[in-house]
């Protein structure tokens, strides 16, 4: 059975071009992809991820709110007793990376990542989570 990825837009950011392209890239790479739609909260994403028993969560953030919202998603997932890894994609300046890793974000994908790089990174995160 193929692994399931929940991809989500949290907060008010409506930019959904990237997440839709990534959804198709992951699907083409053999993953099963579930998309939450826009305007989710950390809690709704965490609940959906646990309900759907996904293997990873992918967040797409382009509004600059990632430093506030991405850690809250990790927190909400852990609160439900789950270790599902959370991957962040979008506009993330280099100077934010250390803090995001410290907050438990499993990987960060930034503009310019190719289809192969995205699929490879997601695969690597899943492999790490399974060991």
């Amino acid at each position: 059975m193929s692994e399931r990825i929940l991809i989500a837009k949290v907060g008010l950011d409506g930019h959904d071009r990237g997440i839709k392209v990534v959804a198709r890239i992951l699907r083409d790479a053999g993953f099963e992809v579930i998309y939450t739609g826009l305007f989710q909260t950390p809690q709704t994403v965490a609940a959906a991820a646990v309900d759907e028993d996904v293997d990873a969560i992918g967040l797409s953030m382009l509004s600059g709110a990632h430093m506030t919202l991405a850690p809250l998603v990790v927190e909400a997932v852990r609160k439900l007793g789950s270790e599902i890894p959370v991957i962040l994609g979008g506009i993330v300046p280099d100077h934010d990376l250390d803090q995001l890793t410290a907050a438990g974000i499993a990987a960060v994908l930034t503009p310019g990542a190719t289809a192969v790089e995205i699929a490879t990174e997601v695969r690597a995160v899943l492999d790490r989570a399974n060991t």
């Binding site: 907060g11 008010l12 950011d13 909260t41 509004s63 600059g64 709110a65 430093m67 506030t68 919202l69």
Partner: peptide, 10 residues
């Protein structure tokens, strides 16, 4: 509550 982290950002 939904505005958290977004105020004045974009």
């Amino acid at each position: 509550a939904m505005a958290l982290g977004e105020v004045g950002r974009c």
